[in-house]
């Protein structure tokens, strides 16, 4: 069991290092604070599910959903504010 766990941990570590290098090689590195709401919407929502369509909800509903997702997905305050502004503008 111990050897098996060690092997799995090493394998996962190798995958992590490999993926880190892959993303590092193809990633521009602007500060998150410099990003637009549209960018943050495209990058963060897809981490769990497809990016939602802006017309799916109205402005007030987006504000409630934003708090829900801020809690659920541990999004930062700055990201949530920008994403909501974008969704309001686009719906």
């Amino acid at each position: 069991m111990y050897k098996r766990n060690l092997a799995i941990a090493v394998l996962m570590l190798a995958v992590v290092v490999g993926l880190t290098l892959l993303v590092a090689c193809s990633s521009n590195k602007p500060l998150i604070a410099e990003k637009s709401g549209a960018q943050l919407w495209g990058e963060n929502c897809v981490r769990c599910h497809n990016a939602p369509s802006p017309p799916a909800f109205n402005d007030y509903q987006w504000e409630t959903i934003a708090i829900h997702m801020r809690v659920r997905a541990s999004l930062t305050d700055e990201e949530v504010q920008k994403i909501v502004e974008f969704l309001k503008m686009a719906n």
Binding site: T20, A24, S27, N28, K29, L31, I32
Partner: peptide, 8 residues
């Protein structure tokens, strides 16, 4: 680690 939030 990356600003694209691609990897967690």
């Amino acid at each position: 680690p990356f600003s694209s939030s691609a990897l967690e």
